[in-house]
Design a protein around this nucleic acid. Structure first.
Lengths: 198, 198, 198, 198
DNA sequence: CATGAATGAGTCTTCATTCAT
DNA sequence: AATGAATGAAGACTCATTCAT
């Protein structure tokens, strides 16, 4: 009955199953047995791939962030490298849009009981990676003379917060018109606020 | 042995104890016994004041939001009513500062396991009340001719997100200098972005 | 707010409330608070009238048995004292009929978790009083030459068992026709089995 | 530390332990921990075999009834098929005797708090199976011309009630002499009441 | 006498984790 | 490597009972 599979695939299957369940029932309600059952393996197998139940979360979060960043970067890559404001705008809007494709996934992954995994959850929760990407963009754009930014890091923090919360808010508001208006506002911010004065 | 107290006080004490513990250990980790012990009452007493363990959260969240809004409104009230940009700036900065006075409290109160209480938790989580206050300010300021805002609601959503996440980020970054820089950036936003062109 | 009432009445009210609730929810599910609330008194008051929660049961059982016996004896009293078989028959049938008027009451009162009140519950459960009445009748009838009974006590035990269980069974079967047939059978028993040979 | 056993055996052991304890302390007083401790397993194991504490009852009742019926049928099988009265008499007396071998077991198994499991508990409590066997015997005996019975079903109900309650009564009375006298009375009933007139 | 806030022992149930097979 | 039976610590919740007012 026991069918050996490549370790990486097993791990992936477990991760997929967990993600699915997490989105459905929330973190607290998903048991290890739920996950292994959904993945079609025995309970014991879980512990060959993860040291503890909580470890899945870290992996899933990393995966989600990567996916999101990929989507944003890909959208951004279509624009001309010199179009700094446009690229940032595109990057931000892609973030909102991608999030809204499957908001439940993000919510369950990142709205965690504090202190559950420890303290490293915070860095992911707070979007260090995203902020870092934004900061780089802003800095590069400013250094290249394409953006008017006084403090790239602070701006990155606040800008990321805008869309991060904005997306959350839009999900809860569930108002498509508002979504478009907020996106328009983001674009406006990028244009008026970031564009160089010339 | 049983020392009767006014119901409202008992409830408050339980709430205080819960808040304290929540900030320390996170929601998931706080047991009813923890709370009652900290409040100096027996386990059973808890259930005279709350129907279930989860009920405390709603109360605490409401309390936190109220406190935060009070602090922001109070700070804002010191400025001249016509100083729209200044008032908004002050309101926003007061939010960050108040949050940073006890960031753990906010984090544990609002970063919940998805689907736990389920219902209206989302609206609190997403800061409907704060956004609403901001929107009112922006609308009033625009109508009074003191602010240049295209879409007050969208702006409110994004602006609130900026400081909401900004505060979170600053807490995790734990860098006082960055805090000041971000606050400066917020001020800059308010000035350059919201002030009328004249 | 505290309104003093004659002790006996208070006790009665508590008993009534308990009986009502017992019939509705079963013994295990009825709490002291349920009872006191239904009786319109405070929890503490309960303990002025009963030493413990379980004491109500004894009282209620006694009350029920008394009522049942009264009904049976009254029905029996309408017949001529010399009509031994008829009186016994009437007494038995009255027992079944009275029971069927409110079977839930009996069930909740007597189908108890064993050992709950201790051991004296058994005597009530097993109908010592009823058996004793029957035994007296049978003995008297035999001694008066009106009944053919070899062993009045054994006969009483078995006869009482017949109708006791018969009533229970009829309640569960919920078949009015069967009820009448069983009652007819009881009458037949009494006639053919108990009547003197002449 | 974990010693795996065949599921059926584990289940049996848990059932045995529960039965033992039930007889000793009554249903309400037996905790899941009592049972698992007596069975030598951990508390959690209980819930691998039963969905809830209450589930044990159904299983035990079924087991008891089966055992009792087996004993009665076996005793009856020793007699000649045509000896209808004798077979019924034997069946009845075997019921009493078997019951008296371990009366506590029956008492605790069937004297339940009303409404606990609720559903089909009643049919077991009221001895549907036993009554059915008796009814069959009486009908067959009558049809074969070996018994004088007007209404087999009613007779079965009352007859079963006689011995059912009789056994209970005898257990509580704890008087061996009375036991024999009651059994003699049962025999007399069967002879005089059921035998054909010839 | 009556009240009802407070007590706290007692139960059921869940589930992460282990480990003999 | 995989299995899944077994573990047992942990926690939520109930409720009979007490007692200060």
């Amino acid at each position: 009955m026991a069918r050996t599979k490549p370790a990486e695939q097993r791990r992936s299957e477990l991760l997929d199953a967990a993600e699915q369940l997490l989105a459905q029932k929330g973190i607290a309600a998903v048991t290890v047995e739920d996950i292994t059952q959904a993945a079609g393996v025995s309970k014991g197998t879980f512990y060959s791939y993860f040291r503890a139940r909580e470890d899945v979360l870290g992996a899933l979060r990393a995966r989600y962030i990567e996916t999101l960043l990929d989507a944003q970067n890909e959208a951004m890559s279509l624009l001309h490298p010199d179009d700094w404001a446009g690229r940032i705008e595109t990057w931000l809007v892609a973030g909102i849009r991608t999030f809204l494709l499957d908001p439940a996934k993000h919510n369950t992954l990142f709205h965690l009981p504090h202190g559950s995994t420890g303290d490293d959850a915070g860095s992911e929760e707070v979007g260090f990676q995203h902020v870092e990407v934004l900061r780089s963009l802003l800095t590069a754009g400013r250094d290249a003379g394409g953006l008017r930014v006084v403090d790239p890091e602070s701006t990155a923090v606040l800008l990321y917060g805008s869309i991060h919360h904005g997306a959350d808010y839009l999900f809860h508001a569930a108002d498509p018109a508002l979504t478009e208006r907020v996106i328009a506002e983001v674009r406006r911010w990028c244009r008026s606020f970031i564009l160089p004065e010339l």
